[in-house]
Design a protein around this nucleic acid. Structure first.
Length: 575
RNA sequence: GCCCCCAUAGCUCAGAUGGAUAGAGCACAGGCCUCCUAAGCCUGGCGGGCCCGUUCGAAUCGGGCUGGGGGCACCA
C-alpha cells in the first residue's frame, strides 16, 4: 500500500527506502528503491498538495519515476521559476508516451483547483516544467506558525530506536583531531535524530582489552620505574606520551593487580573530559572486556559453528565470511589462541541488534573502510538483515596553520590542542564544514580570526544583530500575529522562502546523515538576513511595517538559534 | 595486482535522486556608516582534467584515459 492511512501520507517505511515528511509547510520526498524506480515529492504548503498528488496522480506515482523538486536553493532573482517547480510531467512523458506539455497542463489544472488561494499562479514552461507561485496568504500562514510554535514547528515524532556508535578510540591516550571530527559529527547526528523524535543512544566502544592495552600498561609500569629512579624502557610500539608521567605518579602506590583497571579508567576519564569540553557526552561506554568475560564472544563463535560457518586451518579458527559477501574468510581465533578484534566485534554487533534497535549507525575512520564488508557478512551469517547497520566513514583531518602550532615539532596535534587554540564553538563548526566523505583541512588561523572571513562569526553575528534590534525596539516575545503589511517587498519574500527551506534542510541532514548541509544553510540564511538588514530599515519604518518586520526577523532568529543549537553552538545576544 | 574515493574559478569548497542562466567564501579592484553592531552590504567571473556514449537535456549516469588520495593482516 503506497499511501497509508493517517495523518502522514508517506512514511519512510512504506518505501523501503528513504523518505521524508515535513509537517506544516512543505516538502516531502520519498524514494522507492525497489525496481530501480524512485518517487519524490517535494511539496508546498499545508499538506494539501500532498494529498493532491497522492489522489490525482496515484497511477503515476505507482507506475513511474516521478520527481518534483523545488528549486529553492537556486531561486533566480527574477522568480521566473516560481517558488516550487515540478518535473513530474517530464518524468512521466516517456513512459506514458505522451507530450510532456499536455501532461503538465493536466497537472496544472488539478493543482489550481486543489491549492486555491495558496497559489498566485501556476506556469507551464517549455518541455513541461510546472512552476508554482505561492501566494502571500500561504507564506504568511507558515510564517505565523513558526513564530508561534518556534522549534516545534520543525520537529517531528518519528519514534525510531537508534544506536549511534562513534569515536571508540582506544583508551590509550588523548584523542586525535580525527577522533574529534567523529565526535562532533556523531554528536550533531544524534541531536538531529533526537530532534525528529527518535530515541538515540550514543555509545562508545571501549577497547579495554588486548594488545594495545597491554602495551599501555607496560608503558605506565616503565614510567613508574622511571619515578623510582630506574631506567625507562618503553616497549616496542608502546606509548611514549608525556601524559603517562602524571598517570604514573597517580598510580605509584597502586597494587599491581589493580594497576590495569586504574590506568584504563584514568584514560577513560581523560577522554571523557576532552569530549565534554566540546560538548559531546556519551550515554554508554561499552566494554569489550566485559563482552569477552561474559562469554559472548565464544558464544557467537559457537553459534556460527553450529551453522557450519567455522573451520580450522593452519591451527587457527576461520569464519566463512566470504559466503556472505565478504572478500575472503576471516580469522576469529589466532594460532596463539587469542581472539581477534573481529571476533569480539561480531559479538558486539550481535549484542547491539539484540538490544532491539531499529537502526544501528557506526561512524568509522577511513582505515575501517574494508571492515564494513566483514561486519555486514557476520550480521547476515547470524540470520539478521544487514540493512539495520549503516556505516559512515568519516574522513581524516589535516591541519592548516601558518606557524603557530607547527612549532610543536615532533608531537602530533591533538584534539585538546585544537580546543585550546580555537575554542569549542569554532571547533564544532569547522568540523562539520565538509562532507563526511571528504578529507577536512582545518584552518586554525581562520577559525581563530574574529573577523569577516570567519563563517561562524558571520552566522552568530546575524543572530546577535537581530537580538540587538529587539533590545532597541523593546520587544520581548510578544508578537501580534496579524500583520497586513507582511511581505510587501522582494527582500521580505525572499527571506521567508529561506526560512521555510529550513525544514527541507533538516530532513536532508536527517536522511543523508550529513551535518554539512546545516552549516551551508545557516551561512545562506545569515547572508540573506544581512542583505535584508542593509536594505531595509526595521526600527522607525512606521509602526505596522516595523512590527511586521520584527515578526519576520523573529522567524529568522528562531531558525538561526535552532540551527546553531543542533550544531551544539551558542547563539549570542551580543557580540 | 585488486577494491574504494576524489578531479568544478588563481585558492578552499557548494552544487541531494540528470533538468531550465553551475554557486559561495578567500584573494584582487572599486564603492557604502549624521541612521537598528561596518564581525556587515553593494559592484566586478571567458570555470566542471581528457575522449567517447546514453538522453529531448549530463558537472551529475555508463565506458576508456590521465592525474591525486586511501584500503587490501592470524594489527587494534
Amino acid at each position: 500500500m503506497l499511501y497509508p492511512k493517517g495523518r502522514h501520507l508517506l512514511r519512510p517505511s512504506d518505501y523501503g527506502g528513504q523518505a521524508s515528511y515535513l509537517r506544516g509547510l512543505f516538502v516531502s520526498n520519498a524514494r522507492q528503491i525497489k525496481g530501480g524506480r524512485r518517487i519524490e515529492i517535494v511539496k508546498l504548503s499545508m499538506k494539501d498538495l500532498y494529498q493532491l498528488f497522492s489522489q490525482s496522480l496515484d497511477g503515476l506515482l505507482h507506475t513511474y519515476s516521478i520527481n518534483i523538486a523545488p528549486p529553492l536553493w537556486e531561486i533566480p532573482k527574477d522568480k521566473k521559476y516560481g517558488d516550487f517547480s515540478t518535473m513530474i510531467a517530464l518524468k512521466a512523458a516517456p513512459v506514458l508516451k505522451r507530450d510532456p506539455y499536455d501532461i503538465a497542463c493536466e497537472i496544472k489544472s488539478v493543482l489550481q483547483e486543489k491549492l486555491g488561494s495558496y497559489t498566485d499562479r501556476i506556469d507551464i514552461v517549455k518541455p513541461g516544467f510546472v512552476n508554482i507561485f505561492v501566494s502571500k496568504k500561504g507564506l504568511i500562514e507558515s510564517l505565523n506558525r513558526i513564530i508561534k510554535e518556534k522549534d516545534d514547528f520543525f520537529k517531528d515524532n518519528r519514534r525510531k530506536k537508534v544506536l549511534l556508535e562513534f569515536v571508540s578510540a582506544n583508551p590509550t591516550g588523548p584523542l586525535s583531531i580525527a577522533h574529534g571530527r567523529q565526535a562532533v559529527v556523531g554528536d550533531v547526528i544524534a541531536r538531529i535524530l533526537k530532534f525528529f523524535g527518535n530515541d538515540v543512544i550514543c555509545e562508545y566502544y571501549l577497547n579495554d582489552e588486548g594488545t594495545q592495552i597491554n602495551l599501555l600498561i607496560e608503558s605506565v609500569r616503565q614510567r613508574i620505574k622511571e619515578l623510582k629512579g630506574e631506567d625507562l624502557r618503553i616497549p616496542d610500539g608502546g606509548y611514549q606520551g608525556e601524559y603517562l608521567k602524571s598517570v604514573a605518579r597517580e598510580a605509584f602506590d597502586i597494587e599491581e593487580d589493580k594497576l590495569r583497571d586504574f590506568v584504563v579508567s584514568s584514560m577513560v576519564s581523560l577522554i571523557k573530559n576532552e569530549l565534554s569540553s566540546i560538548g559531546v557526552v556519551f550515554d554508554n561506554f561499552f566494554s569489550q572486556k566485559k563482552l569477552i568475560n561474559e562469554g559472548k564472544v565464544n558464544k557467537v563463535i559457537e553459534t556460527l559453528s553450529a551453522r557450519g560457518l567455522i573451520y580450522e586451518k593452519d591451527s587457527a579458527l576461520w569464519f566463512s565470511s566470504s559466503r556472505f559477501g565478504d572478500d575472503k574468510d576471516r580469522v576469529l581465533k589466532k594460532k596463539n589462541s587469542e581472539l581477534t578484534y573481529f571476533a569480539s566485534d561480531i559479538a558486539y554487533h550481535e549484542d547491539k541488534i539484540e538490544r532491539g534497535f531499529d537502526e544501528i549507525i557506526n561512524l568509522w575512520g577511513p582505515d575501517h573502510h574494508g571492515y564494513i564488508g566483514r561486519v555486514k557478512a557476520s550480521i547476515k551469517a547470524l540470520g539478521y538483515n544487514d540493512n539495520i547497520l549503516k556505516v559512515l566513514i568519516i574522513q581524516l583531518v589535516t591541519i592548516k596553520t601558518k606557524e603557530r602550532m607547527s612549532r610543536r615539532r615532533g608531537t602530533a596535534i591533538l584534539l585538546s590542542d585544537l580546543i585550546d587554540e580555537v575554542g569549542k564553538d569554532a571547533v564544532r563548526f569547522y568540523y562539520i564544514l565538509r562532507r563526511n566523505s571528504s578529507p577536512l583541512e582545518f584552518d586554525i588561523d581562520l577559525a581563530k580570526s574574529a573577523s569577516l572571513d570567519n563563517p561562524l562569526y558571520y552566522v552568530q553575528y546575524a543572530h546577535a544583530r537581530i537580538k540587538s534590534i529587539f533590545a532597541k525596539a523593546g520587544v520581548v516575545d510578544d508578537f501580534n500575529l496579524d500583520y497586513s503589511q507582511y511581505l510587501e517587498d522582494e527582500e521580505e519574500v525572499s527571506l521567508v522562502r529561506d526560512i521555510l527551506q529550513f525544514s527541507y534542510c533538516l530532513n536532508k541532514i536527517y536522511y543523508n546523515l550529513e551535518p554539512v548541509f546545516l552549516a551551508e544553510y545557516l551561512k545562506s540564511i545569515a547572508a540573506e538576513f544581512h542583505r535584508f538588514y542593509e536594505r531595509k530599515r526595521i526600527l522607525g519604518s512606521g509602526d505596522d511595517k516595523m512590527h511586521a518586520r520584527l515578526n519576520l526577523l523573529e522567524a529568522v532568529r528562531v531558525v538561526l538559534r535552532l540551527g546553531l543549537s543542533i550544531l551544539g553552538i551558542s547563539a549570542w545576544d551580543k557580540m
